[in-house]
């Protein structure tokens, strides 16, 4: 800086080509997380949805059923409170709450720090419950093996059309709260078609975490995740 201040004030204007990703720091950490999970034989899932779509409810049932035979762990992000960690902590799996303060998404560094304090011995599946938000989490790779986007049938069939970036990046889309779909007049065909139009790459699962209806394909996916070596 001193050298710069001493340089002649009428220095010529220069244009510097940088071509650098603004998420370089996050992406580097995400790559480190991914390597670490792979080496430990852990399938990490990044669960994303709007607030209230049922991420925690799905994880409660998953930990209480699937978690009985397969060791799981969870980190869960919210702006404040450890309510979700307490809900998920009742099933014997290691759980860590990340409180982000005002941040609207988890980033790879937050996940790395949370995982650092978790006992991952024997863990096969790590659930990363993102902050409820369908916009910001789309940009942030956490090092997950699978990105799972949840959409509750109370939110309307056209959600994928309104929030394309997150749905475009999904490996799996889960329609939740299907036990009340009838009451809400939810058109599951229209929702499935909208998901197919925006996210044809994604596997679609329809379930109810409350009744357990449709949960089997979810457990099958967790038991043999695609791409696992």
């Amino acid at each position: 800086m001193d050298a710069a201040l001493k340089s002649p004030p009428k220095a010529a204007t220069r244009t510097i080509e940088v071509r650098m990703s603004l998420l370089e720091g996050n992406d580097r950490q995400a790559a480190r997380n991914r390597r670490r999970f792979r080496e430990a034989g852990i399938c990490a899932l990044n669960l994303v949805s709007s607030p209230g779509a049922g991420k925690t409810a799905l994880l409660e049932r998953t930990l209480s059923e699937f978690g009985r035979t397969t060791r799981c762990a969870a980190v869960v992000g919210d702006l404040a409170t450890d309510n979700d960690a307490r809900r998920l902590g009742r099933f014997g799996a290691p759980v860590r709450q990340i409180t982000t303060g005002s941040a609207c998404h988890l980033d790879a560094g937050m996940v790395a720090r949370a995982v650092e304090s978790l006992d991952l011995a024997g863990v096969r599946v790590l659930f990363i419950e993102n902050v409820g938000n369908l916009v910001c989490p789309a940009s942030f790779d956490l090092g997950e093996s699978l990105r799972v986007v949840l959409l509750s049938c109370a939110e309307g069939e056209d959600k994928p059309l309104k929030y394309p970036p997150i749905f475009k990046s999904a490996h799996v889309v889960i329609l939740t709260k299907m036990d009340v779909a009838g009451v809400l007049g939810f058109d599951r065909g229209a929702a499935a078609e909208n998901i197919r139009r925006i996210a044809p790459q994604a596997r679609l699962i329809e379930l109810s975490a409350r009744t357990g209806e449709g949960i089997a394909p979810w457990y099958e996916l967790l038991g043999s995740p695609p791409g696992r070596a």
Partner: peptide, 27 residues
Amino acid sequence: FTCPKCGRISGELVQGRELELATIEMS
């Protein structure tokens, strides 16, 4: 992502997620 030739919907994105610092002009 509708293919203009065959009409199929594709999930393959080749461009559009960029978040890049391209150039800086300074003196």
